[in-house]
Simulated scan of single mutants.
Amino acid sequence: MHATIPYVIAALLFGLGVYGVLRRRNAILVLMAVELMLNAVNLILVAADATVKSTLTGVQSEAWAHPVPEPRAGAIFALFVIVLAAAEVGVGLAIVLQYYRLRRNVVLDEVALHEHDHEKVAG
């Protein structure tokens, strides 16, 4: 597989996520678009790690370096991003569900940021 294919796919996924964040009005769909962007970053991390590892296979290590191969740093960072995404989904969905219980609507254009803004929308 060519090294640029994962980068192009990740760029397309990230662009689709940005489009979803900017154009969607539903809060759940915005959270899904953010997850799409985080998954694109995970793809870039793993692809960059594999690309760098395959590029450096013939490079001699220094005398002070350990002869044992290091673990996949890109995959480890991707795991951290997955944990961050899971926490973001948990908190985001809790906020959206609570807002839905209060207002019966999750359209982001109609979210009142201040209490007096809600009075203008309701009255």
Rank of each mutant, 00 (worst) to 15 (best):
L108C: 04
H2G: 09
G58F: 10
L97I: 09
T51C: 05
K53N: 09
I9D: 01
R72P: 14
V83W: 00
A10V: 04
D117E: 11
V18Y: 02
E35K: 00
S54N: 04
L12A: 12
H2I: 13
V81H: 00
L93I: 08
G90T: 14
A75C: 05
R101A: 10
A40I: 06
I5P: 01
A63E: 14
L102E: 13
A3M: 04
T4S: 11
P71W: 03
A86C: 07
E70C: 02
T4N: 09
A65N: 06
V46I: 15
A85M: 10
K120M: 10
F14L: 13
G74E: 05
L84S: 07
A112I: 08
H118P: 06
T57Y: 15
R23S: 15
P6I: 04
M37G: 05
M32W: 11
A48N: 02
V68K: 06
L56V: 06
E88S: 08
A112Y: 03
N42W: 04
R72T: 04
M32V: 09
G20R: 07
A40L: 03
I5M: 02
E88G: 09
E70H: 08
H118N: 12
P69L: 11
E115S: 08
V89L: 14
L22D: 06
L45K: 02
S61N: 03
V111H: 11
V121S: 07
E88F: 11
E119A: 14
L56I: 10
G123F: 08
H114N: 11
S54M: 02
H2L: 11
L16D: 02
S61M: 09
L43E: 11
V121Q: 11
A33S: 15
A73Y: 04
F14M: 15
D109N: 05
P71E: 02
A33V: 14
L79P: 01
A33P: 15
R103K: 13
V46L: 10
G15Y: 07
I95R: 01
H114T: 10
T51D: 05
